[in-house]
Design a protein around this nucleic acid. Structure first.
Lengths: 200, 200
DNA sequence: CGGAAGCTAGTCAAGTTTGACTAGCGCTCG
DNA sequence: CGAGCGCTAGTCAAACTTGACTAGCTTCCG
């Protein structure tokens, strides 16, 4: 349910083996601190939690000669399962929110192209459905007859704001799908060396 | 810095006096649970924290005949200051994020019309500036020459996604400003009974 | 009438996030 | 050469969030 979880799990998976600081640097590189909350503390916490849940395993505690000790992690079988589960959900279900979607983007090329397109189309459908029900809410937002604070006018503004951003998202998604269908990017079924797939 | 803080502070202020459950109901009515995180626990925590910071004061602990005891709060002088500070910031500074902006919307009519328009125009400026620098980032996102994981292609997608949503936001903001300039809504300087202003 | 459901009002422990802090090492520059 | 800066790697307490739980009262419905 957390964007950090997916990001950290995926970052370790991509490297094959990684310690906390490497994950931290990778996430920084993909600007994850901007839109998700990946402060240092969260990353180390996530690593420990994932290890406790047997989704990651501790490989070694290296005595690095340069700076303090490092704990190296690797993804487990269960972790693989969880990773793809989270990835699918984050991509297809708009209710998981934009943070989750952004967290999923780094790993899209680990999927097969057709698969990803399917997931994105599913997201588009659900998003459009959400937009429709928001439109209904806008139409039904009437001023209350009683004097109580009631449902005030600004609620309508919130809904239109919400609607405008979803519409923009849908257009962007449809454009992305079109580009993917036209062959953009290298996916897992195009080449095993697609970005994001673990080495060796 | 937190949307809950602004929402709870503003909700109490709007009522004049309120206990936790009333705040909870108001926020629910404003659909605040949707986009901000206003689970019951957070509200009661926020109330206690705001009271500890002397932004709210405890009025009475009423023995209500209907259900358990209630603690009634009222905003203090300092709270008034903090409220308008947070409100201004949430409206004018896009870096505080959409959650903060949504949390501010319920209270816009407590401002003077010209003041709000000024704040929103400021937001538009900053948002546009952000879009420009994002555009630069997109242009500079080149594939890395070295073999390292590097800055991968999806980062570009994230930026375009980001760009599309902020563009939608700007258009919406400009539309809102136009409507405000045309006289929509009743503001604090139109009538003291504008929505969101405390009673008596 | 009785009891199931629902509302009012709030508490609490467990989990998560924050961001300031430690501490060693290398590099640079006057 | 040594003082200061910045990087590597991570810890930690304090703050915040979550959502399940309590407990009394009212209302509905057969």
């Amino acid at each position: 349910m957390s964007a950090t979880r997916l990001l950290v799990l995926g970052a370790v998976r991509t490297r094959g083996e990684a310690h906390g600081y490497q994950v931290r640097q990778d996430l920084l590189l993909w600007a994850a601190d901007q839109w998700a909350n990946v402060k240092p503390g969260s990353i180390y916490h996530a690593l420990k939690k994932l290890a406790a849940d047997h989704l990651l395993e501790e490989v070694t505690t290296q005595e690095s000669e340069l700076g303090p000790d490092r704990v190296v992690y690797r993804i487990t079988q269960q972790g693989e399962g969880e990773f793809f589960f989270l990835l699918n959900k984050a991509l297809s279900d708009p209710e998981t929110g934009p943070a989750m979607f952004n967290a999923a983007l780094p790993f899209i090329t680990t999927l097969d192209r057709g698969n990803l397109i399917f997931l994105l189309k599913s997201r588009i459908q659900h998003t459009k459905a959400g937009a429709d029900s928001t439109r209904l809410l806008i139409d039904n937002t009437v001023a209350p007859e009683n004097g109580q604070p009631g449902k005030p006018p600004h609620v309508r503004e919130m809904f239109t704001y919400w609607l405008v951003t979803i519409q923009a998202e849908v257009r962007w998604l449809e454009d992305l799908v079109a580009r993917l269908e036209a062959g953009e990017y290298v996916f897992a079924d195009d080449s095993p060396a697609a970005f994001g797939n673990p080495p060796h």
